[in-house]
Design a protein around this nucleic acid. Structure first.
Lengths: 280, 280
DNA sequence: TCGGGTGTGTGCGCCAGCGTACATACTGGA
DNA sequence: TCCAGTATGTACGCTGGCGCACACACCCGA
């Protein structure tokens, strides 16, 4: 779970310094605009993305045009796992669900990093499992839980990956993500607003009471978070990413850390051979 | 997709011979009994399994006891991917859904095989992606498709992994897998039987008209199959595993081949290390 | 042969979510 | 300032699947 480190990418942060240095020259910071399609269904994924403060959804588009989100990826992960696992394509469309920025890297470069083995490989594999678990939980949630619960889960997962508690997102788009009717979202969101958990106005949703959302939410949210914590614990143990007591309502914001610097343009990292890298 | 090679495990078959030889001494053939729990939720997975003619389901058990299958694994895959990706645990229960046999291997051994890199690593990674896609499609299917369609998909996926068109499986168990009511399965299965697609009697289902099932099925089945073909094409390209024209209704049975030999009793491969034989 | 366990058939009322249609309300330009 | 586009609210009937209750059918063992 991406409950901390809201400024950089956790995968990059978790890499051993030597590997990060090797990679840094290959990373390019890019802007991700809302609605942008990063990887089209079935297309060759020539580049991969490490979100910093944006959120990307993996969406499956049915033959009849209906859609369903299978996973959310933010600064806890990387968009483009198929590049590593070998297929370099996937039936999922990767689309920017919340604008922001990310590091971009060529797929070839990532493949080399992975094949080099070591810590980077391990982190990527672990993330792969976490992502798979998230997808599995989406399946479970779709089967068993009510729209309102799913909406809570979805909003929580989204703001967990964003620097604040605002979502720039119409109910129509949320409905596409969840694979439900827009009216259904309106109704569920209306209830949540009436309860004081959220507030929204024309394409902008603000989470007011995170605890309440967590209460109204199904177990799926927690299951996935637990798995991310277990598999990618660095953000919990790393003192730079302090959030010892982040549950249930994580503390936002924390002092800049050196690695954050790479956000500004890799120079920092390149230059950072001697930087105090986290990644225990 | 496991539409051929109904006698051995595809992952093992796909390995370069040298690696297979290296692994062979570590493989033990075991019997898998119906209902057996291979890996419990959250438990350390000390061993992995390469199904030969059994089927294993990955099941998520909710807090309230409800269940939902997230994936089916047969002779096209391996049960225990978390061992490779690093967690060695998963929130999914692995349970034998159709009795048969499998090759068992210690997790440590599989880790070593993977870390050694090369062909085995590649095959395992590709399988990992195929499995993830399958799980994602389960999510999509749960969201958008009718019970009857899901039942068709489930039966097709099951018999694809079995040596014949019979399923020893009560409607109650199917309901658990799909995460629906038993009565719902009764009704859907009744329709399919009336249509002549299947026949069933007390815990035994026989697929009579595979094409009809495929017609009544949703796109999810095909999507997953296509992905398996793409990622693990060996069974299509490898002349030893001829099935050029297997769609839509795969031809069952084919001549023994050298690689298949390990399926029969690994003598070919394992004899070297003084192998134990089938426990069946 | 009988009885009990197990698997299947069926019929209710219920409800969440769907499809549709339309009514507002907000917002950013011309 | 007004308009058009977009976002949201609401209503109504429909349907699929749920929860429950119970009847029947089959199988196996005492």
């Amino acid at each position: 779970m991406p409950k901390t480190g809201k400024k950089t990418n956790h995968i990059l942060d978790a890499l051993p310094e030597a590997e990060l240095v090797r990679m840094s020259g290959l990373l390019e910071r890019v802007t991700m605009t809302l609605g942008e399609v990063i990887h089209e269904t079935g297309a060759l994924q020539k580049q991969v993305f490490f979100p910093i403060d944006c959120v990307v959804s993996l969406l499956y588009v049915l033959e009849d045009g209906d859609t369903a989100e299978v996973a959310i990826i933010g600064n806890e992960g990387v968009v483009g796992m198929p590049v590593i696992t070998g297929g370099s394509r996937s039936p999922h469309r990767a689309i920017v669900q919340a604008a922001g920025s990310a590091f971009r890297m060529s797929s070839n470069a990532l493949q080399k990093v992975f094949e080099h083995g070591g810590g980077a490989q391990q982190v990527l594999l672990r993330y792969s499992q976490a992502l798979t678990i998230q997808i599995g939980q989406t399946a479970v949630c779709n089967r068993h839980h009510k729209l309102e619960q799913q909406l809570c889960r979805w909003m929580l997962m989204s703001i967990d990956r964003l620097p604040n508690d605002d979502l720039t997102m119409t109910q129509e788009l949320i409905a596409n993500m969840l694979g439900v009717r827009r009216e259904g979202v309106t109704e569920a969101a209306g209830k949540l607003q009436a309860a004081g958990a959220i507030r929204y106005q024309r394409g902008r949703i603000t989470v007011l009471d995170r605890l309440q959302l967590e209460r109204l939410c199904c177990e799926c949210y927690e299951v996935v978070n637990t798995e991310y914590d277990r598999l990618l614990p660095w953000d919990r143990t790393n003192p730079l990413h302090s959030d010892a007591a982040r549950m249930p309502s994580p503390v936002r914001g924390r002092p800049d850390s050196t690695i954050d610097g790479i956000g500004e343009g890799q120079q920092a990292v390149v230059a950072a051979s001697g930087s105090p890298l986290p990644s225990a």
